[in-house]
């Protein structure tokens, strides 16, 4: 690993090297397992984002169909959305630190960073659940109007992803605890980190399109 990386850093744009030998996307034979796994998961994430794009499109089409019910402007509390954004952004940052800790093989920092990731993620979920609960108890649940159906599905689908991510996070902590930083576990950690960062990217789209544009546009 170190040797490879050193090379890559010395000549990041590979000037003076032919592309014919490139592993994986040239003719140099099968790529390493880490690259294969990371790339496969990357493609999965892209497919996940395409799925979200279908939900985004539906939300945009149905956003004005409030059927006499409340619109986003009346419902949304931007302070809550801002807090959720902060939680998720910090959680993504903490997840990055966990990746570094794992790459540096520091179990202690890895646990600390993963715990921070988890707590911040749970904080995000708590805020989102309380928002949903408030809407439902006010009679503005997903069955109220097409707009609310689309809202609950789009935001809720992201929330489900975060929940699944937390389950995965706990599993990864248990795996490192039981098996250490083994190569296959490091590959899964890479995938988990990608997943967690991708969720934050989707959230950027969500708070912009749903909350900010819902209130101001």
């Amino acid at each position: 690993m170190t040797e490879t990386v050193a090379l890559a850093h010395n000549d990041p744009y590979a000037l003076g090297h032919g592309h014919g030998l490139a592993v994986g996307h040239g003719g140099g034979g099968p790529a390493s397992k880490r690259i294969i796994v990371g790339y496969g998961f990357w493609i999965f994430l892209l497919s996940d984002i395409v799925m979200f794009s279908a939900l985004f499109a539906t939300y945009a089409v149905l956003v004005e169909r409030t059927a006499g019910g409340p619109s986003g402007r009346e419902l949304f509390d931007l302070r809550g959305a801002a807090a959720e954004t902060a939680f998720l952004l910090l959680s993504s940052f903490a997840c990055g630190l966990a990746s570094i800790a794992a790459a540096a093989r520091s179990a202690r920092w890895y646990y600390i960073a993963m715990a921070a990731t988890c707590v911040l993620g749970l904080g995000f979920l708590a805020l989102e659940i309380s928002e949903f609960a408030r809407f439902v108890s006010d009679g503005d649940g997903p069955t109220r109007s097409a707009f609310l159906s689309a809202f609950f599905t789009l935001v809720g689908c992201h929330g489900l992803h975060v929940s699944a991510g937390i389950l995965w996070l706990l599993t990864m902590v248990a795996q490192v605890f039981a098996k250490g930083f083994r190569a296959d576990i490091m590959r899964r950690l890479l995938c988990f980190a990608l997943f967690w960062h991708a969720l934050d990217i989707i959230w950027v789209g969500l708070f912009t399109v749903v909350y900010l544009m819902g209130v101001y546009v």
Binding site: H25, G28, R34, I35, G38, S99, A103
Partner: peptide, 25 residues
Amino acid sequence: MSDAQAHDPSIEEFDTAPGDEHLDG
């Protein structure tokens, strides 16, 4: 690479996994 797969390190640089940490200690 910690994997058993042997590779010529001089050609590894053309490919990297998305999100990989490039740490060397």
